[in-house]
Nucleic acid binder design. Structure first.
Length: 285
DNA sequence: AACAGGGGCAACCGCCTAATC
DNA sequence: AGATTAGGCGGTTGCCCCTGT
């Protein structure tokens, strides 16, 4: 009946991931791609549940992640999207390549909420906070939906203009003004994102691509969908930058580690492995 | 220099939905 | 068709680090 159990929860490790665990997971995913998270911990030699592995990979280890603070334009986009979608972080994240729902959620809770409150905007309703008694008239206006124009500082507006030009004809404000939150049709990222538009933003993640940008294209991982702007990762405060030393460490002794894995779980050797030119990972980036 | 408090973020928890048997 | 599980998602927690005193 039904599927096999995900993982027996006895003896599974919890808490922060160690570098060794990260290494095992990265090596496994890079070699075998993402499939069947239930099987990943066993095959990768990890004492974690599949769910934990998936989370670690999607939120932290994925090489296409941008890291570091959200840029001004990204932040504004989050605000706009939140006005439409509410706390649907995964939907919001799908509009921001290289950002995870967890990251956006955290950023919302720690930065944007405060920022909006400081500006006199209610983060929940995206309406001005009335310090006095609530006015029914305003309530009525809220029914006609959100108008967050009041939170547009000049810099934010500039960022928005820029965002407009670099992303799509999709203008959150227009949609917001036309629909109530729950009526907004969902728009797929592919519909709103213009591939690889260079940004003139001053954000940390907006520098132009470099020659090394072809690295991931050259590496053809069957199960990866490298986002169009993955090259930006190299210029942002990303895993590829500030954590690069650790990636070096992870990759340099990869062979050695694979041998270790083979001893941990012989079934790993039966998995189809992709050829990965590790030299290029080290020197090309 | 030491301590306390707060902020930020990674990871866990629990629920929901889709997939599978 | 119903039972069961995997995967996905949002909410929450707990730890670590930074800043102020």
């Amino acid at each position: 009946m039904g599927r096999q159990p995900c993982c027996d929860k006895v003896g599974l490790k919890k808490g922060p991931w160690t570098a060794e665990e990260d290494k095992k997971l990265i090596n496994f995913i890079l070699s075998n791609g993402q499939c069947c998270w239930r099987a990943v911990p066993k095959l990768a030699g990890l004492l974690r549940c599949g769910k934990s592995c998936r989370l670690r990979w999607t939120n932290y280890l994925r090489p296409d992640l941008k890291r570091g603070l959200l840029s001004e334009s990204e932040e504004q986009m989050v605000i706009d999207l939140h006005a439409q979608l509410g706390n649907r972080w995964s939907k919001i994240a799908s509009h921001l390549p290289g950002r995870t729902d967890n990251e956006i959620k955290n950023h919302w809770n720690t930065h944007i909420k405060k920022k909006l409150k400081k500006m006199g905007i209610d983060p929940l309703t995206h309406k001005p906070i009335s310090t006095e008694t609530d006015q029914p008239q305003q309530e009525g206006e809220q029914q006609t939906c959100l108008s967050d124009t009041s939170l547009q500082s000049s810099s934010v507006t500039e960022a928005k203009e820029e965002e407009k030009s670099m992303t799509s004809p999709f203008d959150p404000l227009e949609v917001v003004n036309g629909f109530c939150t729950d009526e907004v049709p969902l728009i797929e990222p592919s519909e709103i994102l213009v591939p690889c538009a260079p940004s003139s933003s001053t954000s940390s993640s907006s520098s132009s691509s470099s020659n090394s940008s072809n690295l991931f294209q050259d590496l053809q991982f069957p199960d990866f969908a490298w986002p169009c702007d993955y090259n930006n990762c190299h210029n942002s405060m990303g895993l590829w930058d500030d954590d690069f030393v650790s990636w070096d460490l992870l990759i340099i002794d990869d062979d050695d580690d694979n041998r270790k894995q083979s001893t941990v779980d012989p079934s790993l050797s039966q998995c189809p492995r992709m050829v990965l030119d590790q030299e290029s990972w080290i020197y090309t980036i």
